[in-house]
Design a protein around this nucleic acid. Structure first.
Lengths: 192, 192
DNA sequence: GTCTATATACCGATAGAC
DNA sequence: GTCTATCGGTATATAGAC
């Protein structure tokens, strides 16, 4: 509908996105979702077929969101390598973890194609986009010719995801900064 | 006791370690632990004060185990950089994830110092050990002088942990290989 | 040391009134 | 569309017999 304001459905989705990020699929109980959304049981089961359907839609939206954030850095004008570095320097909440990457450890998510779809889609897109840019950077002689874009792009994404793991394990956001500084130095040869 | 064979206590610990790896702390229920160990309720609550105590001991053992595996690669003879690369090439079950790193996303683990202790201890030790080796490699001019060992060591560990995330998200173990090949190429300048 | 029985809470979903 | 009542199942732990 036009000009509708925030509906119960919206509130349920927001609540689910937040709880999936904080506690994962197993930890996001319908009761907690409803409570956070300030909505009753009936409303939730009216708008969605259950926890799973809610989670599929929530994850799809979250993956889309962070893809747009990545594109904002990757699609800016300038040399290809600068754009990769700009993406690495995007602000991240290291202690909260990646709202998409954290789902990879939830066995219920990994085992369910509908739940894993948005997760796989995001990482497939991101690694491929970075591969293109690194290919471009290599052609422009911004990175060494021996560096395989298909491998380095995956290493870049892995560094970010691992940065979240370390920051949370050590309860120290500077682990993320160190990981990113390390990979930027490796990529740019000290010129970044 | 001497020559005791496998006790119920041992079986409970093994079972807990496996379930923590597969399903995390939230997903490892006492009932499942007992069933897998082929042990009754009473036995479990006789040997341990509950799920938490069991998990603390299980995680401590697991962290110790993978530390020993890492040391086997890092402490071999030869140039420092070769040993770092040897560690990166250690065999890993990419689709299962890291039994220690995966705990970083479990909010109940992160919030509990006794549970997080082994996780933090492992990563603190590993990044520090790699930092020493990279310092040595830099002194020996095996890596470029502009590379800060404190950052690159964290980036190396992050690449491994992120490799697990990507392999699971894409359900493809080659994501781990690609990430490792990428970071090895960045480190060695194509000579690795 | 190990077992079965029991307890309290929460999980995820359904039923049916309004 | 939203609410409350209710359900069968599971999570985590305790009690007490043997």
């Amino acid at each position: 509908m036009y000009c509708q304001g925030v509906t119960n459905r919206d509130r349920l989705l927001e609540s689910t996105r937040a709880l999936l990020w904080e506690r994962g699929y197993i930890g996001a109980s319908p009761a907690a979702i409803q409570q956070r959304a300030k909505v009753g049981q009936g409303s939730m089961y009216h708008h969605f077929d259950g926890k799973r359907g809610l989670a599929v839609e929530a994850l799809t939206t979250t993956a889309q969101d962070i893809r747009l954030r990545a594109e904002a850095a990757l699609d800016r004008p300038g040399p290809a390598l600068d754009r990769v570095v700009a993406y690495l320097r995007v602000e991240r909440e290291a202690l909260r973890g990646c709202p998409v990457g954290r789902m990879a450890f939830d066995p219920d998510v990994v085992a369910d194609d509908a739940l894993r779809g948005p997760v796989e889609g995001y990482f497939s897109w991101l690694t491929e986009r970075l591969r293109q840019l690194l290919e471009e950077a290599r052609t422009a002689e911004q990175i060494a010719p021996h560096l395989a874009p298909a491998d380095v792009s995956v290493a870049v994404v892995a560094t970010i995801q691992g940065g979240y793991v370390l920051a949370r394990a050590l309860q120290d956001p500077s682990a993320m900064s160190a990981a990113l500084d390390g990979v930027i130095a490796l990529l740019t040869g000290g010129k970044g």
